[in-house]
């Protein structure tokens, strides 16, 4: 849960300007290095296009997706950096039965490997499909982008943001949003007039600027409402329902059993009266 963080202006955020991305994938390499993730065996064109590996996985926390399109009769590339969005109010944290996920005040949504029971609800809940599982292991855990929490706590920028030569800026969320708006205003012909992540899933710590429509690049269409509110509107009723059902059934059974008892007592009384009448008759 986001817990007691109320002001998301100061949480660290990634501003990723896809129009400035060159597709060098330095971020992918830096991510693997810092998180000590294994390389994956890959082949070209085994997925949708040039991108490699074919999907994010337990070994790949971030990935540049390629999309080729035509502009003025020329072939062009557009890119999309896939990674954990570090939501302000993360779905993974709300559904985790043991609270293994936490939104930190610094920005990243972090995962506690020691708590996780491996139910994979986070994977079902995440609207961006970020948490991945160690399918090869007998006792698997969840793997996802850490937002380089260990680096941030020590005053460094995340590994991908440090490696990126052009597209990623890292800083307080309010400043990043302001910067994004400034860029759109300064060069309206270059950008789509929308900031992805400003309101998506109730706001995220990763915000994007693009030239092409988001869905064409592979961004998922996501609700603007924080996801935990969808389940909480039902779950908040739990104590009330428990007391109502328990209370009304107790009352009901008290009444029905009392009625039964009274009926029995009445029967007994009439029977004993009959009995005594008979006795009287006998003595007479």
């Amino acid at each position: 849960m986001s817990g007691d963080i109320k002001d998301f202006n100061k949480t660290g955020a990634f501003l990723i300007d896809m129009t400035k991305c060159t597709g060098c994938r330095g971020c992918q390499v830096a991510c693997k290095q810092w998180n000590q993730l294994k390389a994956e065996n890959t082949t070209f064109f085994n997925g949708e296009g040039y991108q490699n590996p074919p999907a994010m996985s337990e070994y790949t926390f971030t990935r540049i997706k390629f999309r080729d399109y035509q502009k003025n009769g020329q072939n062009e590339f557009a890119f999309y950096k896939e990674m954990c969005m570090h939501c302000n109010d993360p779905a993974c944290a709300s559904v985790c039965p043991v609270g293994a996920f936490k939104k930190t005040a610094e920005g990243p949504v972090i995962y506690d490997t020691k708590r996780c029971i491996g139910c994979r609800f986070c994977m079902v809940a995440c609207p961006f499909g970020v948490p991945k599982y160690e399918w090869s292991k007998a006792f698997p855990l969840v793997k996802k982008c850490t937002g380089c929490y260990s680096r941030i706590k020590n005053g460094h920028k995340p590994a991908c943001a440090t490696a990126c030569p052009s597209a990623i800026t890292y800083g307080p969320r309010a400043e990043m949003l302001k910067e994004a708006e400034r860029r759109i205003a300064a060069r309206p012909d270059r950008y789509l007039k929308k900031i992805y992540g400003k309101e998506e899933a109730g706001g995220t710590s990763v915000i994007y600027l693009t030239a092409l429509p988001f869905d064409e690049l592979g961004f998922k269409p996501v609700t603007k409402r924080p996801l935990p509110s969808y389940t909480w509107q039902a779950l908040r009723l739990v104590p009330g329902i428990f007391l109502t059902v328990g209370g009304s059934l107790s009352l009901l059974s008290w009444f029905t059993h009392r009625k039964d008892r009274l009926k029995k007592e009445e029967e007994q009384r009439t029977q004993s009266r009959k009995h005594s009448d008979q006795n009287q008759e006998k003595t007479e």
Binding site: S94, V95, C96, P97, G99, A100, F121, W232
Partner: peptide, 9 residues
Amino acid sequence: FWNPHSPMF
């Protein structure tokens, strides 16, 4: 580790 916000809990 209680998390009352989780239906799974």
